[in-house]
Each structure stands twice: as C-alpha cells, then as structure tokens.
Simulated assay, not measured.
Amino acid sequence: MAFHEQLSAAVDGQRGTAAADRLCEACVTLLGVDAAAISLVLEGAATGTLGASGTLARECDELQFTLGEGPCLDSVRHRSAVLAVDLADPAEVRWPVYRPAMLDLRIRGVFAMPLLVAGEHVGALDLFRAEPGEIHGEQLAGAIAAAEIAGIPLLDLLDTDLRAAVDDPRSDAWAELNALSRVEVSQATGMLVAQLGIDPAEALLRLRAHAYADGRSASDVARDILERRLRLEAH
C-alpha cells in the first residue's frame, strides 16, 4: 500500500484534532522519524499546534513559537519544504537559537512541509529525527502526502465551528480553533503592555526571552503572568 493510502487509512473515521494526532503518529511509524507535529502559522508566527505524535513533538513545536524561529515558520514564509539533515553540522547556520535548543532535546534532523488550505499557506507538517540524515525518495513523497492530508482536520474544525456559529448565535464561535491557539500569550502580552508601558512587539519579545532564559515554554510563562505568579520588571 502506498504511503498516501496508509496515511489516509490512519485518520479514517477521525475528525479534527483527533485526526491530526493520528496523522502525526502515522508519520512516525511510516516515515522513519521520531516525532511529528502540525503547526498553525498566522501572520508569520506559530500560533498553535493542530496535532502531535506525543509530548516531544509538542515541545519541539512550542519552541518555534517561544523562540520565534524554526523550520515551520520558514516553510510557510517561503512556501516550500525546509529540510535540515543535521543540526549539529557547523555549516548549518539557520535558527541560531532554535538549533541548539533542539540539540538539547537530542534532535538532529528537522523537516517541514507547508500546509496549504484554500490556496493559503496556514501551517506546516514538522518531522523530527534523533539521527542525522536526509529524507528522500519514498519518505519525502510520504511527507508531502501527509502535509496534503493535514489540511483535512483543519477544514473539519473550520466547518464545525462555522456550523456552531450559524446554528447558535450565542455560541463561542471558533471555540476549538481558539483553544488550539496560544491565546494566553496574547493576553499576557497585553498585560505587559499596560504594566511596563512598552509596545506589543517588545512585550512579546520580553515574554519569549524570559521563557527561553528559564528553559520554559512561552505558554507556561504567559499563564504565570496572567495568574499573577510572575511579574516582569521594567528595564
């Protein structure tokens, strides 16, 4: 059975985020990688994780948001696959902050395939591998097929939320998509703007820098700010 059929079979009967998770798990099984995630990207920023094969995949994806750089962002920006066969190679100079963070997680290879929905590049399928090496031939074809299939769970969510909004005007429209996005980071950024008297871009940078310095995710730091367990000081 070809990779496309196997990947499609893996998500058969599933919808939304469940289908996205199953697709990522199938990528790990079929494509010879150690983790896989589907990133959502809006206006140049990684805004959420649609699906993941496990905890490691979610951590790798979250790092791209926390650090503001990584293969999924480049893949959407350039509208093409991004392949890094060995992050430990001295000649690999992309992602000066993300790269060492990934090496700390013992990830050597990263591959991102853009996710196209309704003519728009809205995210990427990210594959992570502990061992260095190229992804080519049938594996590369399988990764491209998986990125194509990944658009289906996102369309499911859009359809579900749109129907809910139409059927009940009082519903929380786009609830599931909003749940996927890192809305707490946006809220915490707004708090920092008010508290420190800085612009939103600097506030987000400060939040991300604090998260990186503490070895935590931006989402975790944002929750601490919102729950007033953490207050960043003005410089």
Results as ranks from 00 to 15, higher is better:
2 A>S: 15
4 H>R: 09
5 E>R: 05
7 L>D: 02
9 A>S: 13
11 V>H: 02
12 D>T: 11
14 Q>W: 13
14 Q>L: 13
15 R>F: 15
16 G>S: 08
16 G>A: 07
17 T>I: 15
18 A>M: 06
23 L>A: 09
24 C>E: 03
25 E>M: 09
28 V>N: 05
30 L>M: 08
34 D>S: 10
36 A>W: 00
37 A>V: 04
37 A>Y: 01
40 L>I: 13
41 V>S: 03
44 G>W: 06
45 A>W: 10
46 A>T: 09
50 L>K: 03
52 A>G: 13
52 A>D: 04
53 S>F: 06
56 L>R: 05
56 L>G: 09
56 L>T: 12
57 A>L: 11
61 D>Y: 04
65 F>C: 14
66 T>M: 07
67 L>K: 02
69 E>F: 02
72 C>F: 01
75 S>T: 04
76 V>R: 01
76 V>K: 01
78 H>Q: 14
81 A>L: 07
85 V>A: 12
89 D>K: 09
92 E>M: 04
95 W>I: 02
98 Y>R: 09
103 L>F: 09
103 L>A: 12
105 L>I: 05
105 L>H: 07
105 L>Q: 08
106 R>L: 15
108 R>K: 09
109 G>V: 00
113 M>E: 04
114 P>V: 05
116 L>G: 11
117 V>G: 05
125 L>T: 03
131 E>G: 00
132 P>D: 04
132 P>W: 00
137 G>R: 00
141 A>L: 08
141 A>D: 12
141 A>Y: 01
145 A>F: 01
145 A>G: 07
145 A>Q: 05
146 A>M: 04
148 E>N: 08
149 I>M: 05
149 I>S: 03
151 G>H: 04
152 I>D: 02
156 D>C: 06
156 D>R: 02
161 D>N: 10
163 R>D: 14
167 D>L: 14
168 D>L: 10
171 S>V: 13
176 E>L: 10
177 L>T: 08
178 N>P: 13
178 N>Y: 15
179 A>L: 14
180 L>Y: 11
184 E>V: 13
185 V>D: 08
185 V>Q: 09
186 S>L: 15
189 T>Y: 07
191 M>D: 14
193 V>K: 03
196 L>Y: 09
198 I>H: 06
200 P>A: 11
204 L>M: 12
205 L>F: 08
206 R>H: 07
206 R>T: 11
209 A>F: 03
211 A>M: 11
212 Y>K: 14
215 G>Q: 07
216 R>M: 13
216 R>S: 10
216 R>E: 14
217 S>C: 08
217 S>H: 07
218 A>G: 13
218 A>R: 01
224 D>N: 06
225 I>T: 02
225 I>V: 10
227 E>T: 12
228 R>H: 11
230 L>F: 09
230 L>Y: 06
235 H>S: 15
